[in-house]
Amino acid sequence: MSSVTHQIHRDDYGSRMGMWLFLFTELILFGGMFIVYAVYRFIHQQDFHLAAQELNTTIGLLNTIILLTSSMTMAMSITAIQKGNKKLAIALVIITILFAFGFMVNKYFEWSAKIHHGIYPGSPDLLSKPEGQILYFGLYYVMTGLHALHVIIGVTILVFNVVYLWTGHTNSNYFVKLENAGLYWHLVDLIWIFLFPLFYLIH
């Protein structure tokens, strides 16, 4: 037999597969919204173009870079723990969490500015705009809002994983929880990859 023996039954393969199956439900969740977006953009092309001018492309770009970088540090943390480098793995997950906070801070300023300008769901200013623009901002708030909720959930999962790494529950031999947390985090990144050009880059 091999040198490593297991007392506890486990199936990392099945665990990862379960995570992937869950991610497909997320694809359908966000996918449905992307279809709604596509249909409304198709009907209200001009309004979508006008409304998109109101968004801050710089903040959107900054958040894109933040999420892409956080995805890299997340992926690297798995390499670190596979190599048995516990401290580096913890550091990389914490850096990922800090990037997530950075993302949320930007989101806070972005939304605050919009709300300050009277653009929020149901606001008198927004309701006075043409139908297409109301739909655009409705979708903007719902889709980026649901995405931001995923960021918050992701951070919570990552905090748990810092603890697992710290206590040695996750180690060079058993790291499927970190892998699954990573999969979730990359999904958050994937969704943003589509949200960014579709909402911020319509010129």
Partner: peptide, 13 residues
């Protein structure tokens, strides 16, 4: 090194 239930757990780094 590892054997889970059915699969040889790969450890691609």
């Amino acid at each position: 090194t590892e054997h889970s239930e059915h699969h040889t757990e790969h450890k691609h780094i």
